[in-house]
Simulated scan of single mutants.
Amino acid sequence: MDRVDFSDFKKEALSDAEVREEYEKLKPIYELRKQLIALRKDAGLTQEELAEKLHTKKSNISRLESANSKSSPRLSTIEEYAHAMGYEVKIDFIPSVQR
């Protein structure tokens, strides 16, 4: 049985309009969570260490970073996370393609 390459799988899946639409809706939260993880790792911190710095539990950091989390983080939580590693949060708006 041949293994399917992820990029081939993704390309095929995104050829379906419904899948592509859902993917685009979820893309910002996945990108945010990817950036949060990268900040933490660049700072050389584990989830446990960051949790201690923020006076919270590791499970809260894990949930914040999880792409499968059902909850949406509050902006203040994201700001606290960023500040703990010496960053500020900048929000940017870009025109949508459908304008």
Rank of each mutant, 00 (worst) to 15 (best):
M1C: 07
R3T: 09
V4R: 10
V4T: 14
F6N: 06
D8G: 06
K10F: 06
K10N: 00
K10Y: 04
A17K: 08
E18W: 08
E22L: 11
K25M: 05
K25W: 01
I29R: 13
Y30T: 12
E31I: 13
E31A: 11
K34E: 12
Q35I: 10
L36H: 01
L36D: 00
L39H: 08
R40S: 06
D42Y: 11
G44A: 06
L45N: 04
T46E: 12
E48V: 15
E49C: 09
L50Q: 05
E52A: 15
E52T: 08
K53T: 01
H55S: 09
T56A: 03
K58F: 10
N60G: 04
N60I: 00
I61C: 00
S62T: 09
L64H: 01
A67P: 05
S71F: 11
R74K: 15
L75F: 13
L75A: 07
L75Y: 12
L75S: 05
L75T: 07
S76P: 02
S76W: 04
I78A: 02
E80W: 04
A82R: 02
A82T: 04
A82E: 01
H83I: 01
Y87D: 03
E88D: 15
K90F: 14
D92Y: 14
F93N: 00
I94S: 11
P95S: 14
P95Y: 14
V97Y: 05
V97I: 09
R99T: 11
R99H: 12
